[in-house]
Amino acid sequence: MSESERREPAESTSGKREAAEKETLQSYLQRAREALLWKLDGLTEYDVRRPLVATGTNLLGLVKHMAFIEAGYFGDTFGRPFAEPLPWGHDDAPVNSDMWATADEPREWMLDLYRRVWAHADATIAALPLDATGRVPWWERDRANVTLHQILVHVIAELNRHDGHADIVRELIDEKTGLREDSDNMPDGDPEWWATYRDQLERVAREAGAARG
């Protein structure tokens, strides 16, 4: 048996393992992307922009932020910059300008922009091996050198964190919950059940607070 014949099965197994790992990571990334966009379904332009907590978190702003995040991490980090300008990411942009959409930035335009960023990010993921190296210029020097695998995990974690923000903001708007339209992933309770459940938690919290300070 030649050296190439002995080597081929190992290389083939390694390639299949990498492809499977990429597929797993991308499936989590895509599900999180779609969950975020679903949170805007059925809402008015006003509601997708409403700042419902003291820090101003709002649904369309979360989409804008993630477009900026994915364009940077899957673009600039690996020398594959996203072609369209994202001025809210410039150093001289107002603080937090990536966390809210202006009146001149319609919802559909923002959603389409994020989808174009997805395509660019997915092209980077497809083109590079998981151990491909890049550099995050906005990270501290001692941790700026990264791999595609690390960036995939980082972005999935950040996106899911913001999905959680979107869950709460959407519930505050119209009490709609769940991962997506066809999978609520919440207990099947009517409004009366949920009111009773919430009252129970409030009562327990007060009892624990009184007992333990």
Rank of each mutant, 00 (worst) to 15 (best):
M1N: 03
S2D: 10
S2T: 07
E3Q: 09
S4Y: 08
R7V: 02
E8M: 11
E8Y: 06
E11I: 07
S12L: 13
S14V: 12
G15S: 01
E21H: 12
K22C: 10
E23Y: 06
T24H: 13
L29Q: 05
E34R: 11
E34A: 05
L36G: 01
W38P: 03
L40G: 01
L40P: 09
T44M: 05
E45G: 05
V48K: 02
L52Y: 00
G56C: 02
T57E: 03
L60E: 06
L60A: 05
G61P: 01
L62M: 12
L62G: 00
V63N: 02
H65T: 06
A67V: 01
A67M: 05
A67Q: 06
F68H: 14
E70H: 11
A71D: 01
A71Y: 07
F74T: 01
D76W: 13
T77C: 13
R80L: 12
E84N: 06
L86Y: 07
W88E: 15
G89E: 15
G89N: 08
H90N: 15
D91V: 15
P94N: 01
V95S: 12
N96Q: 10
D98W: 07
M99W: 07
P106A: 02
M110D: 05
L111D: 04
L111G: 05
R115E: 14
R116G: 11
W118V: 13
A119T: 15
A121C: 13
D122R: 08
A123V: 12
A127G: 15
L128T: 06
R141W: 09
D142Q: 09
N145Q: 11
V146I: 07
L148A: 04
L148G: 04
Q150I: 08
I151N: 04
V153M: 02
H154E: 10
H154M: 02
E158D: 10
N160V: 06
D163Y: 12
G164A: 07
G164K: 00
H165Q: 08
D167C: 03
I168W: 04
I168V: 08
R170E: 07
E171I: 09
D174I: 01
G189Y: 06
P191Y: 10
P191W: 01
E192H: 13
W193H: 12
W194C: 07
T196R: 15
T196N: 15
D199R: 14
D199N: 03
R203A: 00
G209W: 05
R212P: 00
